[in-house]
Amino acid sequence: KVILLEDVKGLGKKGDVVEVKDGYARNFLIPQGLAVEATKGNLKEL
């Protein structure tokens, strides 16, 4: 699961917690600054 930092077409809006494949999160969303891993600490910051 990841928390979206920006609106991502076809996935969700900023602040949404979405389930995506590990590779998509690690190789695209997180490096592009579009999402962060949905850890307990990150979820509390919402």
Score class of each variant (00 low, 15 high):
Asn27Asp: 14
Ile30Gly: 04
Ile30Cys: 05
Glu37Lys: 07
Ala38Glu: 07
Gly41Cys: 14
Lys40Tyr: 11
Leu34His: 04
Lys9Ser: 11
Phe28Gln: 12
Asp16Leu: 06
Gln32Asp: 10
Lys21Gly: 14
Gly10Trp: 09
Gly10Asp: 09
Lys1Ala: 10
Tyr24Gly: 02
Ile30Asp: 05
Lys1Cys: 11
Val2Glu: 00
Ala25Ser: 06
Asn42Phe: 04
Val17Glu: 07
Asn27His: 11
Leu4Gln: 00
Lys21Trp: 10
Asn42Glu: 07
Gly41Ala: 15
Leu46Trp: 02
Gly23Leu: 08
Gly23His: 14
Glu37Leu: 13
Leu43Met: 05
Asn27Trp: 07
Lys40Cys: 14
Val18Phe: 04
Gly12Trp: 00
Leu46Arg: 15
Gly33Ile: 02
Lys13Asn: 10
Phe28Gly: 08
Val36Arg: 07
Ala35Leu: 01
Gln32Pro: 02
Lys13Met: 07
Leu46Gly: 15
Pro31Trp: 13
Leu29Gln: 01
Ile30Thr: 03
Val2Ala: 02
Leu29Ala: 01
Leu5Cys: 10
Arg26Ala: 12
Leu46His: 15
Gln32Ile: 05
Gly15Val: 00
Val8Ile: 10
Gln32Cys: 15
Asp7His: 09
Leu29His: 01
Val17Lys: 05
Arg26Thr: 12
Val17Pro: 02
Asn42Thr: 07
Leu5Ile: 11
Leu5His: 03
Val17Ala: 04
Lys40Ile: 15
Leu46Met: 13
Leu29Phe: 02
Glu19Gly: 09
Asp22Tyr: 08
Gly23Gln: 12
Val36Phe: 04
Leu11Pro: 00
Glu45Asp: 15
Pro31Thr: 15
Leu29Ser: 00
Pro31Phe: 10
Ala38Cys: 13
Gly33Val: 02
Leu4Val: 01
Lys40Gln: 15
Ala35Trp: 01
Leu5Pro: 01
Glu19Asp: 12
Asp22Thr: 10
Ala35Thr: 01
Lys21His: 13
Val20Ala: 03
Leu34Pro: 01
Gly41Val: 14
Gly41His: 14
Val17Arg: 05
Leu34Val: 10
Gln32His: 11
Gly15His: 08
Lys21Tyr: 10
Leu29Glu: 02
Leu29Ile: 02
Val8Leu: 08
Gly41Pro: 10
Leu11Gly: 01
Gly33Cys: 09
Gly15Trp: 11
Glu45Phe: 03
Lys44Asn: 15
Val17Asn: 04
Ile30Ala: 02
Asp16Arg: 04
Gly33Ser: 05
Ile30Met: 04
Gly41Gln: 12
Gly41Met: 07
Pro31Ile: 13
Val17Tyr: 09
Lys40Val: 14
Lys1Asn: 08
Glu45Lys: 06
Val18Ala: 04
Asp22Asn: 09
Ala38Asn: 06
Asp7Trp: 06
Asp16Ala: 11
Asp7Tyr: 09
Val18Trp: 02
Leu43Thr: 08
Val18Arg: 05
Asp22Leu: 08
Lys9Met: 13
Leu4Tyr: 00
Leu29Gly: 01
Ala38Trp: 08
Asn27Met: 09
Lys21Ala: 14
Lys1Tyr: 07
Ile30Asn: 02
Glu45Met: 03
Glu6Phe: 12
Arg26Gln: 14
Lys1Val: 10
Asn27Ile: 05
Pro31Lys: 14
Ile30Glu: 06
Ile3Tyr: 06
Glu37His: 10
Lys9Asn: 12
Lys1Ile: 10
Leu4Lys: 00
Asn27Ser: 13
Val18Thr: 03
Tyr24Trp: 10
Leu11Asn: 01
Asp16Ser: 09
Val20Ser: 03
Leu11Trp: 05
Ala35Phe: 01
Ile30Phe: 12
Ala25Val: 06
Gly23Tyr: 10
Ala25Tyr: 04
Val8Asp: 01
Lys14Gly: 04
Thr39His: 07
Lys21Asp: 09
Val8Gly: 00
Lys14Gln: 11
Ala38His: 09
Leu46Asn: 15
Leu4Asp: 00
Lys13Ser: 10
Gly15Ile: 00
Gly41Tyr: 01
Thr39Tyr: 04
Asn42Gly: 07
Val20Lys: 00
Val8Thr: 03
Leu11Tyr: 07
Lys44Gln: 14
Ala35Cys: 04
Val36His: 05
Val18Pro: 01
Asp22Lys: 08
Asn42Asp: 12
Ala25Ile: 06
Glu6Ile: 12
Val36Met: 10
Asp16Tyr: 06
Leu29Arg: 00
Gly12Asn: 00
Val20Tyr: 02
Phe28Asn: 14
Gly33Asp: 04
Ala35Ile: 02
Leu34Ser: 04
Asn27Gly: 11
Asp7Ala: 09
Asp7Leu: 04
Gly23Ser: 12
Leu43Tyr: 05
Asp7Lys: 05
Glu19Phe: 14
Asp7Cys: 12
Leu43Arg: 03
Asn42His: 08
Glu19Ser: 10
Lys9Tyr: 14
Glu45Gln: 13
Leu5Ser: 03
Ile3Gly: 01
Leu5Ala: 04
Arg26Val: 11
Glu6Ala: 11
Gly12Met: 00
Leu46Asp: 15
Phe28Ser: 10
Val20Pro: 03
Val20Cys: 07
Val2Trp: 09
Ala38Tyr: 12
Ala25Glu: 05
Lys1Asp: 05
Asn42Leu: 08
Ala38Ser: 08
Gly15Glu: 02
Gly23Ile: 12
Leu34Ala: 04
Leu34Ile: 10
Val18Asp: 00
Glu6Met: 14
Lys9Val: 14
Asp7Ile: 04
Leu4Trp: 00
Asp22Gln: 09
Lys9Arg: 12
Ile3Val: 10
Arg26Ser: 11
Asp16Trp: 09
Lys21Glu: 15
Tyr24Asp: 05
Val17Ser: 05
Ala25Trp: 05
Gly33His: 07
Lys14Cys: 08
Gly12Glu: 00
Leu5Val: 07
Asp22Trp: 08
Asn42Cys: 08
Asp22Val: 12
Val2Gln: 01
Gly10Leu: 05
Asp22Met: 07
Gly12Ser: 01
Thr39Cys: 08
Gly15Pro: 00
Val17Leu: 11
Lys14Trp: 03
Val18Lys: 05
Gly41Leu: 06
Lys9Pro: 15
Val8Cys: 07
Gly41Phe: 02
Ile3Gln: 07
Glu45Tyr: 04
Asn27Cys: 12
Gly12Arg: 00
Glu6Val: 13
Gly23Ala: 14
Gly41Ser: 14
Lys9Trp: 10
Leu34Asn: 02
Asp22Ser: 13
Lys13Pro: 02
Leu5Asn: 04
Asp16Met: 10
Pro31Tyr: 13
Leu46Pro: 15
Gln32Val: 07
Glu37Ser: 09
Leu11Val: 12
Leu4Gly: 00
Val20Asn: 01
Lys44Val: 14
Asp7Pro: 06
Gly12Pro: 00
Glu37Gly: 06
Ile3His: 04
Lys21Val: 13
Val20Glu: 02
Tyr24Glu: 08
Ala38Ile: 06
